[in-house]
Design a protein around this nucleic acid. Sequence first.
RNA 1: GGUUCCGUAGCUCAGUUGGAUAGAGCAACAGCCUUCUAAGCUGUGGGUCGCGCGUUCGCAUCGCGCCGGAAUCACCA
Length: 598
Amino acid sequence: MQAIEQMLTSAVVEGFKVLYGASCTPGMIQLQKTRKEFEGDITLVVFPLLKLSGKAPDVTAGELGNYLQANLPGITGFNVVKGFLNLVVSGRYFLQQLNRAASEDYYGFCSAGENSAIIMLEYSSPNTNKPLHLGHIRNNLLGFSMSKILKASGKKVIKTNLVNDRGIHICKSMLAWQLFGRGETPQSSGKKGDHLVGEYYVKFDQEFKKQVSELVSTGLKQEEAEKKAPLMLAAQEMLRKWEAGDETVMTLWKEMNSWVYAGFEETYRRLGVDFDKIYYESETWLPGKKAVLDGLAGDLLVQRPDGSVWADLRAEGLDEKVLLRSDGTSVYITQDIGTAQVRYQEFKPDKMVYVVGNEQNYHFTVLSLILSKLEYPWAKSLHHLSYGMVELPEGKMKSREGTVVDADDLMDEMISTAREMSKELGKLEGLNELEKENIFRIIGLGALKYYMLKVDPVKNMLFNPRESIDFDGNTGPFIQYTFTRIRSVFRKAAEQGIEIPCEAPLHVQLNDKEKNILRLLHEFPAVVQDSGNMYNPSLIANYVYDLVKEYNQFYHEYSILKEDDPEKKALRLVLSRVVSGVVKNGMELLGIEMPERM
RNA sequence: GGUUCCGUAGCUCAGUUGGAUAGAGCAACAGCCUUCUAAGCUGUGGGUCGCGCGUUCGCAUCGCGCCGGAAUCACCA
């Protein structure tokens, strides 16, 4: 209700001067949607204004109501309940808005101008030792959706991915492959590259555990055994060789990583996410190290006698944090310092947003403080878009217990569920196999994406693989279904030679359902802005659901093509077209495709 | 133990800066397809918004204290 709210706010301020000779600030004016059980569209809460008017709530409300009705053409009536002034907005106003929406392809979207803020958005950030899983799916969908939403709010967005391609974890996979792999490659085995490398990571863990328990049985303590197991020593040795640039290790590293990237690329493509710029930690850890050494030289950091370098954050209520180990090697946060700096130099973003799980909340507060300590002027521009864990009924996912839900498997399952369900319902007759498969893909992925995105990002969410993801009710397929039904009406209309008008007639009488839908449509631009400002795609998901739910009731109660009154029919056709457009645009902001039929 | 986040119907979740009688879906039960796609619609049942105190005209929402859950506090990433 953006436009009309602004109009009302200034009118109320003006009215207060005229009626009471008092000036109220816009902040005191509370406008909200009128609840369904009352007559009206917008409600002004008058409680905060009583001190200024010096009159009882109902009297103040009544006087203001009279003033607004007399002075605003958009307000055609009002009623007062206690301290609530319910205003009736003219149908004409909403119809004008409808026609405006009908004339815009991307109603509610702003396009980025010359001076738009540049936002660098990092998401996904996988390790290269195992395939993507359920947690990554939430991350990827959230990140990709936010990029769409921010663009629609008029920002310039650079999507980026930071690949964690170096470290002990990848060495473990490499080592296991060397020892047990017998030259197996994605080509020779037909396995997807990331899965293949992931198998050797698991293999390493299995063999490592065997060695540990053997050592324990010879009398060693668990901790010591873990440190002395030959496999672990070999992995550490390999990491040292990697840092020294050993040719054999580097060759193997490059090859196995390339398998993983090919696998990731396929998963990303199926998920429908992409990136503008990919960074590799193997390329940013050195700049990070340099930044820390520069900070040390500038007395911003402290060095201990053993050579390790620290940031002292005790003044900020936190602890000290190590940035370089005593042997001079870098730690995790050092790389993030380097990455941030490299990014800033390359793109000069106004904001750097990190889509990273809430398990790293502490890490990001520390990172931001350290960057401030290093006196980077852009340190405050970091924003951690923290999201909750995806939990299984048994609790956390554990690779060792085989409870990890693999991203590729999950997508396969969703699509085959869509296929089975469609077969059961006996739909899609007359389409060829290729077309059908594409629709199953759209529905299956739509269910998955909507399921993940309708939940507020800050909250942990539960995923039950056995019950799978619903296709009924508040779901992606439900929204897609309503969309295809509108498309179907339009196909019928075309068959009958009915044209869909560009505009609805302004004087047509609206029924309750129609007005509800118009009200909802009017909110869409504000919802897009809000979800951008609050980094929360679930606002859009829940909005689209509300709209679709409302439209379904309308659809069920009134016919469109069989309506006799030509103006009513025109309204309903335009209304349906705008609803389908807004639904499609809203879902696109969630990265969800819409099928033409299902 | 310190810090941060979460706690709303049997289950999964909405509830924008405090506002009127707290909403959906799933599950259960009862209806609606010769009429624009029934992945839909209608109805019934289901609540001490974790608990308590405070702030005020008014709190699921803000503050404090408990209770319960999660994450984190490494020369791991």
